[in-house]
Design a protein around this nucleic acid. Structure first.
Lengths: 355, 355
DNA sequence: CTGAAAGCGCTTACAG
DNA sequence: CTGAAAGCGCTTACAG
């Protein structure tokens, strides 16, 4: 017990001292952004090597420069949930591609609303942010980022805010799918929806739930379905997963045969896969006894059907968001981008048996 | 043109001034980590609200505190490539789960070797790092992180380094699969491998290539296969993808029928799927004309077969790495973890026709 | 409970 | 080409 305890890592000042130059000069030697003689530069680098100096501290550098070189991606809910959702993965893939010119890192975190977490919307050291997906907390997030002065772009669901949005035609696309079911002869149709709000309330979709909804995507797809089937009963799931779809389908499928829907419109492919599973568990065949329409256009692992669905360009959306970030960071004005989904007719829809 | 141009964001000092307290007190009011009277705290918060202050700057905070609250994940090659690889996705998922107690963000970047990029191994503002997967540049990465004093754990492929490793039984598992093929009666077996080095050299695997290899996983799986089939010809792919597998299978499948392998051992499921596609393009049936063994245990999108493969616990590996990070950050000594893969017998392997 | 001071490690005008 | 100085915005002992 005597001298220094923790073996402190060397700093630029240490390197400068050893090289016999000023800190400014040492800094220049590292950044290369100034006139330094080759001899001096060599001396600094040699000193750094001798001290096992790892290079300028990124924390100090980013404080001083005001930029961190990091682009944030804000996911709703837990980060790991996103890794289980093929749509999110494809979107992330697109973002990574879009921001590639930046050489920036991608910081993933959530808008769980905990501003005290080490990394959150309120305090993440990011130069720009992409908000992904229909988060109920979106308004608060956008506001927090505005206060921080951080360029932001939202993928889906920031209606009314000032930030650029990357969207798809949720309502029109769903209407197109619903129209198709209608043309096939379906009249009793059920809907399985994504969550409406931060609480992710499960169960029958009431007027009240709709009125208090904060998730634009859910509302838009619901409106599209109801524009064709105004009275279609809807059940809200708590998220986009096969299991949630299976649960949500229950009240619809357990109705007496004469009341049971002949078709179900699901707001995501994973939900649709759950609906199909629920139907098959009850001995119903798809599309014989029940037609099922999805949304997304992903391939669902293990699903034996070619799902009829609205194919949306997830990766394109991500890339557009990434490119918007690059533009904003360059001081340009980014623009919102709207993509279009296409109806893919698979083998999970057919005319109803009793048509 | 006169006064201030850029509408500077308010700082803690501004808030303190407006609240009529010192910066120290204002800081305390925000962090909550000190004794401040309720009245003062309220005054500070009110001043902050009036100034639209967004809270302490994370860059300054992390410089001062010495921690960023960010865990880095280093991927080989481009970030977006990882989003296309199911094994990586499952591993990331596991890491996210493992570090959940930290509330930390996950910063994804690559070890592309460009230390001048805004975010790289040399300068990423991270508290700890997980190196994922068999990177040829691993040694350099580990060394850079050691110099920076950043706790590091490697998933696969850091033999000989001082850092904890999360591994699986690559050699033994592959040997188990090869044994199974041998028992089925196969004697002419080909191998399609992952890359051996940073160059990702494609083509016939020569002794020279093996001698210069820097990717442990590739070598271990190769050794496992050759322990059963010492003379098996091997073709290296440039990555783990269906297309690479398809290409790599070509020289093996284009041999005259009497020399053509009756079975191919692929070092990943994606490569195996490519091998199967290549076989079917040539009118060969699997497993009738060719048995195919994979590695990973993922479901390959669009593959009509139930692949015989070595099922490895990717998510578990990620979680173990995340937990190791949490332990290191808590000052505990982490330990290496070795997982075991299991042989899954699907419908892509059978006795050879000429057995 | 509150304030003055130092300092985290670097970069950037500004002189020379 | 090089150096002295200021400051990025905060937090943390240390006094009081």
């Amino acid at each position: 017990m005597g001298s220094d305890t923790a073996p402190r890592h060397p700093t630029l000042a240490d390197v400068a001292a050893r090289a016999g130059v000023s800190a400014s000069t040492a800094s220049l030697a590292f950044s290369g952004s100034g006139p330094v003689s080759d001899a001096t530069k060599e001396r600094v680098l040699a000193a750094a090597a001798e001290l096992d100096y790892a290079g300028p501290d990124p924390r100090a550098r980013s404080l001083r420069r005001g930029r961190s070189g990091i682009v944030g991606v804000v996911l709703e809910e837990r980060v790991r949930a996103a890794f289980l959702d093929p749509v999110k993965i494809r979107t992330l893939d697109g973002i990574a591609e879009g921001i590639a010119p930046l050489g920036a890192g991608l910081l993933l975190f959530t808008d769980a609303g905990d501003g005290d977490a080490p990394v959150s919307i309120e305090n993440a050291p990011v130069d720009a942010v992409v908000l992904i997906g229909c988060s109920p907390r979106l308004d608060a997030s956008v506001e927090a980022l505005r206060r921080r002065g951080i360029p932001t772009v939202a993928i889906e669901g920031a209606p009314g805010s000032e930030i650029p949005e990357i969207t798809i035609d949720n309502e029109q696309a769903t209407r197109r799918g619903a129209d198709y079911l209608h043309h096939l002869g379906h009249r009793r149709v059920g809907i399985v929806t994504l969550p409406f709000d931060a609480d992710r309330t499960r169960g029958v979709v009431t007027d009240d739930l709709v009125a208090r909804a904060t998730t634009a995507v859910t509302l838009e797809r619901l409106a599209g379905a109801r524009s064709v089937f105004p009275d279609a009963p809807a059940i809200a799931a708590a998220g986009s997963s096969i299991e949630e779809g299976r649960e949500a389908a229950r009240p619809l499928l357990d109705l007496p045969a004469v009341e049971r829907p002949t078709a179900i419109i699901a707001q995501s492919d994973l939900l649709a896969a759950g609906v199909i599973r629920a139907a098959e568990e009850r001995g119903l065949t798809v599309p014989g006894d029940l037609s099922v329409l999805g949304f997304d256009g992903i391939r669902v692992d293990g699903l034996q059907h070619d799902l009829t669905t609205l194919d949306q360009p997830s990766a394109d959306k991500g890339r557009a968001a990434g490119e918007a970030v690059v533009r904003m960071l360059a001081g340009e004005a980014p623009e919102s981008v709207a993509f279009t989904s296409t109806l893919h007719i698979g083998d999970t829809t057919a005319a109803p048996r009793t048509a």
